[in-house]
Nucleic acid binder design. Structure first.
Lengths: 340, 340
DNA sequence: CAAAAAAGCCAAAGCGCTTTGGAAGACTCT
DNA sequence: AGAGTCTTCCAAAGCGCTTTGGCTTTTTTG
């Protein structure tokens, strides 16, 4: 059932039917009702390919997926996706993932924009002065950044959590508990979120006249193994930290294992706080010692990004509004006063 | 730069240019070279929307993503995606995720087929007599199943690993080591993979005159917490198992925690084997006691599925070929002879 | 009541590609 | 040399929608 057939059986022109369906004003309300009715009755759905060709709109949102043998997709991605999907579903928005060489995403961005494959894109895990932002801005496609970049002379729309604030709070708590030597096991410090987190920790320490020693900060991709290695390195040095703030639950698994291997205990010998993105399959309260966390649901963020993307597409949202979500600090058994 | 302009500057018809570009035979090789050359020089790329409308082909593969508040996307998905992306990237294939109400995916399948949004789809986590298979078959869109269904009177193309064989081997090893009471901590037993795994364990036990007790098999979604609960339940009963086969590394984390909480040890009191899908962020060799696993890279499976999907789209693959990959059994420290 | 404005509808021209049905010219064959 | 066959190219007709520009008809206005 296409427009031609439908309009023919209504004895109307395609123009009128199209306009009636798309809510244009220059059509009699009575006629509109007839059209709407017939459309529904016959299950008419405009052919998206045709509509696309005519309008240039695709009804999809895009994401450029960095791939390559050495590239692992972040497991956070799937949770983010859950949220995105939750919202997108209710609006019949599809998501197109365009795999790209991790070292040359620009080509892919240009392609999807030139091809008008998607109406908007989102960008995740931004770095300071991230080239994708500049690119996407000049290409002029609506977008939202999940996270933040830094060092641009222009604003852009983003959704981020207050990483600095979260880690500031976590560190402040530890300092208040008497810890003097904190360590940070961070994610890849080329990404802004990691930089912000480090900044938060430093600020909290500085407020008490403390500092984050060179050898007390690790920056690694977030795997269990890296968490283990980092913890071993930290705990086996002379001025071993008495508290660790850790950027991910997965790394925290490794930290816990290292602590055990070294015959130490949490929170007796070491206090531990980690960031929790809220995975259904790994919960901080189920750690051997319930883990204190800075918590922020990445899934909710996904839903919100989808919502804003939809708003931008339909012109409801404009400008470069940045949105920063506060982060909960959830105290559980893994923190205690500094050992004497 | 569109076809019209290009053909005009070559003083050729759109027909000829189009044919030259698409490799049709009825064009002089000399002419074809000229065209190809000019196209490259001017960076001409056919407009996908237009091509789509004309051909009905989209150059994308689809996946219907079940969503909903109570629905969690499997973390395996992201690894599978990595593999899919690896292949898709080199062929400029995009992946479109269509979020659907988990309880009504049919509508979405019908939509994406009717709209010709994608050239092929893949289906994952199939169940016995999975309705999606029947649906997609009748809708007539090329597809591949990752995993297997059962109980259909028709064949279909799939890629699966030898779950039964893998768990058979694992169980056989344990039996050979003298274990009489095995337990299985399985994934959701409405899914075929879980059924096959249980079958494998049962077969191995039967071969030695043993059975898998009713109370020795758990079937749960694969979270750390469920692994813990299952293990506690198993180990605290009278006829506690001396060996456990577990369907996922994440659940195995919970098992290890439970064992520890109960003051037991691996492999002294309990032997443990788990299935490893090969995540970069959680490796069996890094468990407190290196974990024996049945190993199969889900990422490679993703790449292979993409490859076969591409082949089906271009007509290179036909029929209902099923492909079953063998699974490695990797023995590490977590298994030992049965306690006396 | 005539002129101007508004309302309601339509034919046709795109959007940019593929593909059908020829047609002209070059080649082969008897 | 004329008929038949390839080879190589083209004009034009879709694909199914949106949108422009215009044409009636009705309503408003001075």
């Amino acid at each position: 059932m296409n427009l031609k057939q439908l309009s023919h059986m209504l004895s109307l022109s395609q123009t009128t039917v199209s306009r009636a369906l798309n809510g244009y004003p220059e059509v009699n309300e009575e006629t509109r009702r007839r059209v709407m009715d017939a459309a529904k009755r016959h299950g008419y759905r405009p052919n998206p390919s045709a509509r696309r060709l005519a309008t240039g709109k695709s009804g999809m949102i895009g994401y450029v997926l960095p791939t390559g043998n050495a590239v692992d997709i972040d497991p956070h991605f799937v949770e983010f996706l859950s949220g995105l999907g939750d919202y997108a579903r209710s609006h019949e928005l599809d998501l197109v993932l365009s795999p790209a060489d991790a070292d040359d995403q620009e080509t892919t961005y240009r392609r999807i924009v030139a091809n008008r494959q998607v109406d908007a894109v989102y960008i995740s895990s931004p770095r300071p002065a991230d080239r994708r932002l500049a690119l996407v801005s000049t290409l002029g496609i609506p977008f939202i950044v999940h996270g933040r970049s830094e060092g641009f002379d222009f604003d852009y729309p983003y959704l981020d959590i207050d990483n600095e604030g979260a880690f500031h709070e976590a560190a402040r708590l530890l300092v208040q508990l008497g810890h003097k030597r904190l360590a940070l096991i961070n994610g890849d410090d080329r990404e802004t979120f990691a930089i912000h987190r480090e900044r938060g920790v430093r600020r909290a320490l500085a407020a008490s006249g403390l500092t984050l020693g060179e050898r007390h900060v690790c920056s690694l991709t977030m795997t269990e193994e890296n968490g283990y290695r980092a913890a071993r390195r930290l705990l086996e040095q002379d001025e071993a930290p008495t508290a660790i703030v850790c950027s991910s639950l997965i790394m925290a698994l490794g930290v816990v294992r290292a602590v055990r291997d070294l015959g130490r205990t949490i929170p007796g010998d070491l206090s531990l706080v980690a960031h929790d993105d809220v995975f259904p399959w790994l919960r901080p309260e189920n750690f051997p010692v319930p883990l204190s966390t800075t918590r922020s649901s990445i899934r909710l963020a996904g839903a919100r990004v989808a919502e804003r993307l939809a708003a931008r597409i339909s012109g409801l949202e404009e400008g470069a509004r940045g949105e920063v979500w506060p982060v909960d600090l959830v105290v559980r058994g893994s923190v205690a006063g500094a050992p004497v």
